[in-house]
Design a binder for these strands. Structure first.
Lengths: 109, 109
DNA sequence: CGACGCTATTCAGCGTTACTATGTACCGGT
DNA sequence: ACCGGTACATAGTAACGCTGAATAGCGTCG
């Protein structure tokens, strides 16, 4: 992945994961696979797990350990009220940024 | 400014500044003022100057020292060919990200 | 003249984030 | 018994923006 993408993901990836969790509960491995499907081709596994630990510590998600049929038990995360609040704040921040950038992109040619 | 905005600006602010410079040459103080006008209310001065040093070292901009009527001489930056290439790459990366996020935002309700 | 305010740039130290690279562990099929 | 896929964890590194301060030129007001 380009270095630009790496830097641009900072602060955004967390929002993406929270958005995923707002649709339905999921576990780390699943989220990583989904991201790769969506074209974030080489997001490292470790990145997602570290992020999940972070949002858990901040109290944005609830965790439940669920035994898996094929492999070690899964840690299933689900967004709680505080997490939803954070997600809304994320969308506000994102919208602000996206608007300015769209204007710049259109105006700049 | 929110912490979210701070993190989200990483990798984006550089693109914004390059986009500004693609329209016309400018110097640090001017760019900072413009950003504040656009609603990036408290972007630190130091941030923009550090960014300009970085893009200069990477060879994305040309620099010219111009005496100022009221204050120390200005360092006027202008985007060169390499910078334009980097800016295009930035827009591609941004578009990719913006598309995924828009889908997530719409789908997530 | 001297103090202040505006213009303009620079720098050291810090916190946050994502990546790299590796390690652990559980399971089924051959 | 081994291997590959599933699933989680973590120590170390690099990049970026912020904080807070320093430096410096110029004009104005008292």
């Amino acid at each position: 992945m380009g270095k630009q993408m790496t830097e641009m993901l900072k602060g955004v990836l967390e929002g993406i994961v929270l958005a995923i969790l707002s649709v339905r509960s999921a576990y780390g491995y699943e989220i990583t696979a989904w991201l790769r499907d969506q074209g974030f081709s080489d997001i490292a596994e470790g990145t997602v797990y570290a992020l999940l630990v972070r949002v858990e510590q901040r109290g944005f998600v609830d965790v439940e350990k669920v035994p898996s049929e094929k492999g070690p038990p899964r840690k299933v995360y689900s967004l709680n009220a505080q997490g939803r609040e954070c997600l809304e704040e994320f969308w506000r921040t994102w919208s602000f940024l996206a608007e300015r950038l769209e204007q710049l992109h259109k105006g700049g040619r």
